[in-house]
Design a binder for these strands. Sequence first.
RNA 1: GGGGGCGUAGCUCAGCAGGAUAGAGCGCGGGGCUCCGGACCCCGAGGUCGCGGGUUCAAAUCCCGCCGCCCCCA
Length: 585
Amino acid sequence: MQGYLKEELQKVLKEKYNLSGVEFKVQRPKRKEFGDLATNVAFILSKHLKRNPFEIAQELARELGKNPSFESVEVAKPAFINVRFSKDYYYGVLKDILTKGFDYFRENLGLGRRVQVEYVSANPTGPLHLGHGRGAVVGDVISNLLEFYGWDVTREYYINDAGNQIRMLGISILYRYLELMLSLIYEGAYSSQSYLFAPPGEATKKDKLYARISELFREIGEEFEQNGYRGEYIKELAQKVYDLYREQILELPKEEAITFLSEFGLKEMLEEIKRDLEDFGITFDVWFSEKSLYQTRYVEKTLNYLREKGLLYEKDGAVWFKTTEFGDDKDRVVIKKDGSYTYFASDIAYHYNKYLRGFHKVIDVWGADHHGYVPRVKAAIKAFGVPENWLDVELVQLVKLFRDGKEVKMSKRAGNFVTLRELLDEVGKDVIRFWFITKRSDTPLEFDIDKAKEESSENPVFYVQYAHARISGIFREVLNRKGFDAEVEFEFKPELLNSETELELIKHLATLRDELISIAQSREIHLLPNLAVELVKRFHYYYNHYRVMVDDEELMKARLALLKAIRTALRLIFHFIGISAPERM
RNA sequence: GGGGGCGUAGCUCAGCAGGAUAGAGCGCGGGGCUCCGGACCCCGAGGUCGCGGGUUCAAAUCCCGCCGCCCCCA
């Protein structure tokens, strides 16, 4: 309805003042005496026209008042124009929702254009933690919205499988594997005849194993101590390696063993990450490997392209990219002194690749600790001649976890972080998804596990889901008692809903359409939970004050229609947030 | 040192492309179906919008400075 009013106003501005493209605001007033929608357009015009805003408001109101969709158009105090829509307009809204369902709320903002949303992209060297989980929800919810509003969305996960950290994963697994082997030997494994017997003058098989373990410990021990991954999951991986390959790993040369275990660990971790995300309601269209950028020589090609444009130079034995020419505060290294590429190099190549894949827009959801990285990547994009706003970066701040009123400190290196999986098992998908987007994503989130769990009945997630279950329950009851099936399409007389409360509810649904569109445009997804709570509050109020199952069958049908419309809106919001819409609780 | 963010009710947070009497949930105090799901509803208390300036018809909202906390870079 905001869109409708804006269009009507623009028409009037064009006809009466020959103005177009004037930016003004149409919003729902805080107090309902001020009508359904209010606009500040007269204030804005007073600057353009250099006239008293109040007079302008009166002129505009007179024009708008001619339109039958408006019941009244009034001018208030300084120069607000307050508009009230007619009942028929609202009854039309209700009918629309019943016949069109989700489509009533739809608007083709994307025009079928392709957009890529890249999110999570966590290093596959460990399980997902809460910060990843938050990024996952943010990316997923944004994708849901864009998809609904007419964009062709590709959800993508960028796998950092090329750097040194993958080798470190292999070393870490090897280290734990060696520990495991050692303890097995101490516990008496490898004590059978074949291991203890040896021809005179030769070491036993067991001794050889022991010697090899010691040797490898010496070779990788220091590296592990310095940079190894310490989490329990590494030990689990080592156990898995042992279960599959027994002592065979020891027979490989050191580097081969590390490579083998790196790849093994990578594959296992990716599978685990994929599982966790699926249980979190998240799937990706593309899992994009960083390594593949090297294998297809994409990094090389990208750098050549930049070199031809004269944007690379050598200094101190390294190769630099003149990002300062595109707004960065200093140039950046793309090839280090030792000849290896920097992460930045592959990131440029990756974004160049995204561009060549033909996305109209790209949204990267990153951890906020990468925010210093944004100007660099944006600079690279400009160097490719891509418009700057082609790439949007959504920064997602940390999640602080509280248990028993105390913060649970997390460190990935020390391995004492809480994984997404643990939280998922403890409080469930819906609760996490809902809470993770209740706060603007660029500010840190405090997640109180006790509140999320113990007070589940006082939890807003359950509050909104309860409303959905309640409506469904009523429908079941109506079918039982009255033999009327509200789940199928039915005729009703909207004009029977003429109480203040009922009209307000329909208005609210019409407003909701505007607000959802605005959220999709601004990507302010943290407002979605609010919207759900607000709608549900009105529903519960209505339910407590009006009976649905009344003897007057026509009235009952009209009220059922209203509940059904509310349920449709709820389902849509739940769909965006990615939580379930339970039929019963 | 440079950059970014945050500071609104006891707690967690909305509101901030300026707009009318600053909102929600939780918590707290009081109340509400013999009847469609009480995981609900109603009423109430609770705020110098961190502090100080500026911009203007109008500032929680924009600008400047300061204080406090967090993050990134060097």
